[in-house]
Design a protein around this nucleic acid. Structure first.
Length: 171
DNA sequence: CCCTGATTCGC
DNA sequence: GCGAATCAGG
């Protein structure tokens, strides 16, 4: 993929809106987040808020016989949204960098343990058990490590996958 | 573990 | 100019 004016324009826009490099890469499609970051730097439009301070690093002596196996499972080819000049596609990604301040300690209810969950990032390995009222600010997901390929952590899995007999009883 | 941006450097 | 690899931090 080459950086057409259109793509660069989209990049600038999304970056200005505060989307992360990986999210931008996902929308542009065909590029990695590194590519996006690299481009951002070349365009000299780096500063934006302040995600990870840049205290002038000066380390990099790589090369010299790497030594690592190539175990990078790329996450390319995601559901690339194809509406290009649209503004509508923006909505579904919507990475509101503000609303996260409503996150509060997860252990206010029955959940025994909780995990950091810096923001609402749900992965394949995070418990997706919803907690609280979706309409309330308290709402959040468990976020604990889910068991091997499971949607919930071991705790919530027990609740979610109740034996038929038991569930029948409480009805 | 997941993620973030920053930097370097071979291409 | 480009972006993978790497680094540094959350």
């Amino acid at each position: 993929m080459n950086w057409t004016d259109e793509r660069v324009e989209t990049l600038r826009k999304l970056w200005a809106e505060g989307l992360s490099a990986s999210q931008i890469a996902a929308q542009l499609g065909g590029v990695s987040r590194n590519a996006v970051i690299g481009k951002v730097h070349r365009l000299k439009l780096s500063s934006r808020g302040r995600a990870t301070a840049a205290p002038a690093r000066q380390k990099k002596a790589q090369g010299a016989g790497g030594g690592k196996s190539v175990t990078r499972s790329a996450t390319v080819t995601r559901t690339v949204t194809t509406s290009i000049g649209a503004t509508a596609l923006q909505q579904q990604f919507d990475a509101e960098p503000v609303a996260r301040q409503y996150l509060r300690p997860v252990e206010n209810v029955v959940v025994p343990i909780s995990r950091r969950l810096q923001l609402v990032q749900l992965n394949e390995r995070t418990c997706k058990w919803p907690n609280g009222d979706p309409l309330s600010e308290d709402f959040h997901f468990c976020g604990n490590d889910s068991a091997e390929s499971g949607p919930y952590c071991t705790y919530h899995a027990k609740i979610a996958f109740q034996p038929a007999s038991e569930r029948r009883r409480s009805r």
